[in-house]
Design a binder for these strands. Structure first.
Length: 629
DNA sequence: AACGGAATGC
DNA sequence: GCATTCCGTT
């Protein structure tokens, strides 16, 4: 809904709203928080701490004051500010770190996102070179947001002179300021260098290797000026790794990189699990101060390149569909030496990516594939709409509708009631732990599965055949996760998918069950799900079953791995309730798939180009933010 | 401290 | 749509 239909797909609102949303030109609180976090000068006030994405407000009053200044709301106080932060819970932008005062955590997964193809975990690149700084085990965030530069546009980088540097810097700097300050964007320059020191290079690198989003973060982040890095890269010197991006190396081998599309980082991976290193907050993806997503640009971009669409599928959820995508063993290969995984978090969750150990819980899936997925991607359930309450009637129109149409398309889901769009959003979820509990454990039964997941999927995949096309680009898609309900993914115009782009193919993204001609690759992927697929692409097994299996698998994994977002679960639960069966099972969260690097399709030049453009646009947008009070 | 409903403003 | 403000509850 929100997004214009032209392209067909939409991202969650917040995903793109950078600092300002169309309607409101003002900076959003989460952006502001990120700004503060990236500035050294505010370390005493607010700082990254703990898990990836976790930050603590050391001086609530000061933060409130700063925020008030920025918004020209002198009466602002922590109580009010915190209320605003709480609203993010449902949006899944943030969640509270329980037990720690003034500590919140960004859901970068969702935010960022997106599509990272995967990253070869196995390969060298993926390997983290440096240990992750993350001290605390991360609990949930798995994904480092990355930004592969290459992806975007190898050729033209943002970095290129004008764009990046100037933009990045600007962005970086001015933001925090208060009204007076804020307006002036330029103030300190420090950013380039110092700004993100905290994080240190370590994490970034690590990440980079992992993901390679097409548009994703990269674009986003870059725009913002990466962590200190933005400025740095001289135009000429671009390494693949791209300084800006958090990822040290790009996964892609060349420009094209491995995967064209990407997965979404959003998936939640448990930090421990997939990443050898966790991203440190400091480095965090968000380094750039602002994230901005320009919807318009995105759209264009996407439109231009269908691929993007495909990417969408790549998103975690998408993976679901493409079971085949396997990541080459993600075991953290290198990780071992440096960092003992244990370090991360012994705690429950690190879901072991390793296939090897996965419990044998799932028998079902056996056939599906051998590797359970190294990565887990947790699909997130659509965020609940806040309005459950009133919504009863209203149903939060947006969400529902969108889902129905878009998601349904994929066919996967929708068997049952494609017609009626289910409404997903039930309520907000908060991050609770309950999540896990809530989760259904037994997936075994079909129905159950269906119910729960159904919602999720539905949203994800459009029922209509065009599904594949619909997707959005991964990056966003990831983001979208949360909001699926809302409109995250709109159905796109669905480009007729006819020919998949190489990228896609490579990626194996293709989801739609009903697809016509799949490429071998795709088929292969599918096979994952469906055991009995005929070469022709025909699936012998009913979707449902397949899903179930998958679901089961996921669940297991999750169980192990853990709860990522409690919220998600909650959401699901809610959904269930809200929507009874009709949907297909899916797991929003549960699924985690591992993407594999196999894809080898180089992205089409055009695409890249587009991305670069996008990035630029994004950057510009971000610049716009600061207005005076 | 944290949560979240409700009303309200922009 | 995104807070801001108020406020009762946990």
């Amino acid at each position: 809904m929100k997004t214009p239909g032209d392209t067909g797909f939409a991202f969650p609102d917040w995903a793109y709203k950078p600092e300002s949303s169309p309607g409101s030109r003002q900076i959003q609180l989460w952006h502001f928080i990120l700004e503060l976090l990236r500035k050294e000068e505010y370390q005493e006030v607010i700082a990254w701490q703990g898990d990836y994405g976790e930050f603590v407000i050391k001086d609530p009053d000061e933060v409130a004051r700063l925020w008030g200044a920025r918004k020209c709301k002198p009466q602002m106080n922590y109580d009010k500010l915190s209320r605003a932060l709480r609203y993010y819970y449902n949006k899944r932008i943030l969640h509270k770190t329980k037990g720690k005062r003034f500590t919140y955590k960004f859901n970068f997964n969702k935010l960022v996102l997106v599509n990272y193809p995967f990253i070869d975990m196995g390969s060298a690149r993926g390997v983290p070179q440096s240990a992750p700084p993350v001290p605390t085990g991360g609990s949930h965030f798995r994904f480092p947001p990355s930004t592969p530069s290459e992806v975007l546009s190898p050729s033209e980088d943002l970095r290129s002179p004008g764009v990046f540097s100037s933009v990045g810097r600007r962005l970086a700097r001015g933001s925090v300021s208060d009204c007076s300050d804020g307006t002036s964007t330029n103030s300190e320059l420090e950013e380039g260098v110092g700004v993100e020191d905290r994080g240190g290079p370590g994490p970034e690198r690590a990440f980079r290797g992992l993901l390679h989003p097409r548009l994703s973060h990269d674009s986003l982040f870059r725009a913002y000026g990466g962590p200190g890095g933005l400025g740095r890269p001289p135009p000429g010197h671009r390494v693949h790794g791209d300084p800006l991006s958090p990822f040290p190396v790009s996964p892609l081998p060349g420009p094209g990189g491995l995967l064209g599309p990407t997965l979404s980082p959003a998936l939640s991976m448990t930090p421990g699990s997939h990443l050898p290193y966790t991203p440190s907050p400091s480095l965090s993806p968000m380094l750039g101060s602002h994230f901005s997503f320009n919807p318009e640009d995105m759209k264009r971009y996407l439109q231009a390149h269908h691929q993007s669409v495909y990417n969408y599928h790549l998103s975690p959820r998408a993976f679901f569909h493409y079971p085949n995508i396997v990541v080459p063993q993600p075991h953290r290969p290198s990780a071992a030496p440096d960092k003992p995984p244990a370090a991360h978090h012994p705690s429950h969750h690190h879901a072991p990516l390793m296939p090897t150990h996965s419990h044998s819980l799932h028998h079902h899936q056996g056939e599906e594939h051998q590797h359970p997925s190294p990565f887990k991607f947790k699909l997130q359930p659509p965020p609940l709409g806040r309005k459950q309450r009133d919504g009863s009637a209203s149903s939060t129109g947006g969400s529902t509708s969108s889902m129905g149409s878009s998601y349904a398309a994929s066919g996967l889901l929708t068997n049952s009631s494609s017609a009626g769009p289910p409404k997903i959003k039930v309520e907000p979820i908060s991050d609770m732990e309950s999540e896990e509990e809530v989760e259904v454990t037994d997936i075994s039964e079909e129905e159950e599965l269906l119910d729960e997941e159904g919602d999720v999927f539905a949203p994800l995949y459009p029922t209509n055949g065009s599904a594949p096309s619909t997707v959005t680009n991964g990056a966003l898609g990831a983001i979208a996760e949360d909001d699926l309900d809302e409109d995250v993914f709109k159905t796109p115009a669905a480009p007729p998918m006819g020919p998949l782009t190489p990228t896609l193919l490579g990626l194996k993204c293709e989801p739609a069950p009903p697809m016509g001609p799949l490429t071998p690759t795709l088929q292969g992927l599918k096979s994952d799900l469906a055991p009995p697929i005929s070469p022709g692409g025909t699936l012998c097994i009913p979707l449902k079953l397949r899903f179930k299996r998958r679901w089961s698998e996921d669940q297991k994994m999750e169980a192990d791995g853990e709860r990522e977002d409690a919220e998600d679960k909650k959401v699901r639960a809610e959904k269930d309730e809200a929507e009874p069966a009709g949907r297909e099972p899916e797991n929003g969260e549960g699924l985690r798939k591992s993407p594999s690097l196999n894809l080898g399709c180089p992205p089409p030049p055009a695409q890249r180009r587009a991305s670069s453009e996008l990035q630029r646009a994004t950057a510009q947008l971000s610049l716009e933010n600061h207005g005076a009070c």
